[in-house]
Design a protein around this nucleic acid. Sequence first.
DNA 1: TCTGGGGTCCTAGGACCC
DNA 2: TCTGGGGTCCTAGGACCC
Length: 345
Amino acid sequence: MSRDWILHVDLDQFIAAVELLRHPELRGRPVVVGGTGDPTQPRTVAATATYEARAHGVHSGTPLRTALRRCPGAVFLPTDPPAYEAASARVMAVLREFPVRVEVWGWDEAFLGAITDDPETLATDLRDAVRTRTRLECSIGIGDNKHQAKLASGLAKPAGIHRLTTDTWAETMNDRPTDALWGIGAKTSRKLAALGLHTVAQLAAADPAELARHFGPTNGPWYRYLALGKGEAEIVTTPWIARGHSRETTFTDDLTDRDAIARHVADLADQVTQDATAAGREITRVSVKIRFSPFLTRTRQTKLPAPTTDPATVTRTALAVLDRFDLDRPVRLLGVGVDYTMPDP
DNA sequence: TCTGGGGTCCTAGGACCC
DNA sequence: TCTGGGGTCCTAGGACCC
């Protein structure tokens, strides 16, 4: 019987896999990708690491200098976003050749909506086509909604196919910790544990009003909803409309000079405005982010009196927002972000 | 582990208005 | 006048995700 299914396609080790296609001689060696590829650069972290590097305790997010210490024999490569963008586009094009609705979810993921009586065969065909046409491996999860499909693709790794539906949810998920759910991270999991809610089953059986008291009227009941295996099942094939945009820079050496800080903020504001204009968007709000040494992050923001595309207005506003900070300690990061006018729905 | 960059959404509290 | 209640907008921060 044909029915609607949600599939989640997750490219395995996407960035590392793209790099290994370009550098086949590195296959089987520990490879770490991040920053400019210079492992002595401080304040730079790995974007990804191959399984061989992971065996040495190097993961995505590991500082490169730590990676070098743990795995001196690793090959370090710079990140190359345009290359990943291009590889991602090739994969999405392959997916779109199938009779499915495709919702792109970042570089290395997509949700698919499909009507079929045999989702496993469809998934196998998709995986084989991606492999043949792009030489990239992917895992595919099958579910009744995005949440189930997303968790299923995680269970399918590497290069496998897994089905997780409402029928099998409880037996698969009930004994897992709450942070196994998509949308519950370390912080929330710890708070839930403090309430005696350690497993998915315990969260599913919790009182929604009690959860609302601790986590707010939306989040509290939503966590229980996740634990019951529910989730969004609508596939949106139209391109995502960004809510905003930002740029930020972490400095190798802290900034202390006020003029230098102001210059950087002005540069970021100008860049962000150019980005907005290139995207054909208007700016409604300007925010400035400062991370002070050692690691204290603060933001200030202001709504513009009217939407603008004018770099001078945005820069002037960003500098005025900057003036509201106490610049009383060294600065390790500066960022400027903007909100966009949203088109009428 | 001395901790990137780019996003999204939610919450809480204050200002302001009726 | 000696203090209510609700609605909306704005800001700062937090959590999560890739």
